[in-house]
Simulated assay, not measured.
Amino acid sequence: MKIIVSPAKKMKVDDVLPWQDLPPFLEKTGRLLETLRAMPYDRLKALWKCNDSIAEENLRRLETMDLRRNLTPAILSYEGIQYRYMAPDVFTDREFDYLQQRLRILSGFYGLLRPFDGVRPYRLEMQAKLSVDGAKDLYEFWGADLAAALADGTDWVLDLASKEYSAAVEKHLPASVPLVRCVFGEEQEGKVVEKGTLCKMARGEMVRFMAETGAARPEDLQAFDRLGYRFSPRHSVENTLVFLRGE
């Protein structure tokens, strides 16, 4: 089993724990770095869809970025809502070992990351309109590489990523490796409605729940009961596990 999650825009440098390995697609990351460095400021700002302050910060990052030095473990580098609720700073060694084997972070810049792969702060979303090496965008640039790495040696994949990121692997996974989704929502007028921030919180809590319990099968996830969510057999279907608040 593998678990996929999205990265976060906000990143930090953290030397509390050492990184273990370089990311597996570092050569392709290097090509992205070369392409970004060659772009003028106005195009970078448009690509990043941000204000001047954030654009200038990330321009400085590009200018000084060394992909092999001063690295932070990926799982400690991201600061988004999902990671705050995952709370990696307080994982035990056993829980870190569980995640190192199973958790994979999808990234527009790095491709696919294990928790202790060393990274530098960057800004590049998977859906960014960036043409590289003849590929029209990052989905085409990464192609089937990420799905192939994800499917190697596993029998199913748990999708805790946003649609933007899961789209990078979904259509490339072999039929023998099903993608199982978790839906975190509320029932409103007979429909299951997902709310962005609550979904991110629940995805982080689900990762923590799995690491703490050693979950290995889809049915193991049905015991998840955090943030007011409960598994709903009535709303769930094959390869889609639905958790509702207030039920």
Results as ranks from 00 to 15, higher is better:
M206T: 02
L198G: 05
V5A: 05
T64H: 07
E238C: 13
L103K: 06
G190T: 01
L47A: 08
A38C: 01
S166R: 07
R245Q: 09
M86D: 01
K163Y: 13
R123I: 06
G134R: 00
K171Q: 11
D220S: 05
D133N: 14
Q82A: 09
C182T: 11
Y98Q: 04
R120A: 11
E95G: 04
E57M: 15
R31Y: 12
D155H: 15
P7S: 03
M11A: 05
E125M: 10
T72N: 03
L17D: 14
Q100N: 15
W48Y: 13
V242E: 00
L227C: 08
L130V: 05
A38I: 08
M86K: 02
M210P: 00
L32I: 09
G204C: 03
G30S: 07
A151D: 10
R84T: 09
R114W: 07
Y78C: 04
S166L: 09
L59T: 05
R31M: 12
I105M: 03
A135R: 06
L76E: 05
G190K: 06
R114I: 02
P24R: 01
A223Q: 08
Q101E: 10
K163E: 13
I105V: 00
L130S: 01
D14G: 11
R102F: 03
L47R: 08
K2T: 10
I3R: 02
K129Q: 12
V169G: 03
Y41T: 10
G134P: 01
C199R: 15
M1C: 09
D66G: 07
L138G: 00
F25H: 10
I105G: 00
G190P: 04
K171Y: 11
K12G: 14
W142N: 02
R208N: 09
Q127T: 13
D97L: 14
R43Q: 13
R60Q: 14
Q188P: 10
L36H: 03
K9N: 06
I54P: 01
F96I: 13
Y122V: 07
P233G: 04
K136Q: 14
L99F: 02
F25E: 09
F209M: 05
T154L: 08
D152C: 14
E219S: 08
K191I: 12
D66K: 13
M86V: 11
A215Q: 07
R37L: 03
L62S: 04
M11G: 03
P24G: 07
G246E: 12
P233T: 04
A211Y: 04
W142T: 07
L62C: 10
L103D: 02
P88H: 00
D97S: 15
L241C: 04
P23E: 02
R68S: 13
P121Q: 10
Y98H: 00
E95F: 03
D225N: 15
L150D: 00
Y98V: 01
Q20G: 11
K28L: 13
T240Q: 11
S232G: 12
V132M: 00
L26W: 02
D89S: 15
I4A: 07
A216Y: 14
P23C: 07
G108W: 01
V180W: 09
V119W: 01
E219C: 06
S77F: 07
K12D: 11
E63F: 11
A149H: 08
D220W: 07
L158Q: 08
L221C: 04
M1V: 12
Y85M: 10
N239P: 10
P40W: 05
K28E: 14
V13D: 11
G80R: 00
